[in-house]
Amino acid sequence: MRKFVLFVGGLVALLVLLANLGPMVLLAVSGWLLYVVFKKFVKSDSTAAKVGWVIIGLIVLSIVFSNIYAVIGVAAAYALYWIYQNWNKDDSDPVVDVMDSDDPFTNFERQWAEINN
């Protein structure tokens, strides 16, 4: 049952990721452009150039904010990574019975499991 739920969750996350792939690429490109505009703004000497870079930066920033839904795609990518990491994880405890005896042979499995964890 656990693997079925992980499979369905992975399938949904994959579909969401594929649906948001375009906005994710555009968000990354516009973030890079915003960085380039900032670097050009810092290097410019004249006031007119700085005003021009601020206007271009605001235009690029509006593109960044219009693609903010790409964060959903990033969350879907993280969900896929989490599902991949937890696919073969075993939730069961290796020792089911815990004996309250002082006999070392009856508690050996429990102690061995505690050492390994």
Rank of each mutant, 00 (worst) to 15 (best):
A48P: 02
A19T: 07
K43E: 11
R110C: 10
V37K: 01
L18I: 06
L27G: 04
L34Y: 09
D90K: 06
A77W: 00
T47W: 13
Y69A: 07
G22E: 03
A70R: 00
L80F: 03
K50I: 10
M1L: 06
W112T: 14
K89P: 03
W32G: 13
S101W: 05
R2V: 13
G57Q: 02
A79P: 01
V60P: 05
I56E: 05
I68F: 15
G52M: 13
F65K: 11
W82L: 10
W53C: 02
P23V: 04
A13Q: 00
P104S: 09
V71Y: 03
L58I: 12
M99I: 14
V29N: 07
A75W: 02
V29S: 08
V96N: 09
V98L: 09
L15C: 05
S101I: 04
A77G: 06
V54W: 14
V42N: 07
D45Y: 04
Y69L: 07
L27K: 14
A75V: 02
A70P: 00
V71W: 09
S44L: 05
F7P: 02
V71R: 00
V12G: 01
F108S: 14
N107E: 06
F41T: 02
D90G: 03
V60K: 03
V25S: 07
R2P: 04
A79L: 05
K40Q: 15
N67L: 01
W87A: 01
V29E: 08
F4T: 13
D45E: 15
N67W: 11
N67M: 10
L80T: 04
K50A: 03
Y81A: 11
L11E: 00
V71M: 04
G10Q: 02
D97C: 08
L6G: 01
P104Y: 04
A113P: 04
R2H: 14
S46R: 11
A79T: 10
G31R: 15
A19I: 10
V54C: 11
N88P: 02
